[in-house]
Amino acid sequence: MTKFGYVSVEDYVPLVGEFAESLVKGKIFATKCKACGKEYFPPREECICLNDEMEKIDLDTSAKLVSYTIIHVPPESHSTMAPYIIAIGEFPNGLKTMAHLVGVTSMDDLKIGRPMKLVPQTLENERIVYKFVPA
């Protein structure tokens, strides 16, 4: 089964498994609480209103850059990847998430507010992740 992330430490839970399988098919889903309507991305199985009946909804993956960093000294688990850009992006529905930003070539490409898109990226070892790319 495909796993999510460049690395992971958590026992593999069903939601993340489904999310990874969905990414393989090119689809990125968020979740929405059937009781209060609150939306979550990354997806959650449970709502803060303490309801656990959630539905999957499509995420509008266009985003704007909210903040970023370039990791030069990585944790042990990412030791071969540095330097890499970690960005926070905000989607049209107001939800925000963290992901690598790939495909920018100069600091001029890193303007706050710049348009991006969240896309799946297949990795080696049956892993998959989402990343931001310039839009």
Binding site: T69, Y84, T97, M98, H100, V129
Partner: peptide, 16 residues
């Protein structure tokens, strides 16, 4: 689940 898999270090969080 959603931050560690991207290799965000502690300095990384404050850098954001």
């Amino acid at each position: 689940r959603w931050e560690y898999p991207f290799g965000c270090t502690f300095p990384g969080f404050y850098a954001l």
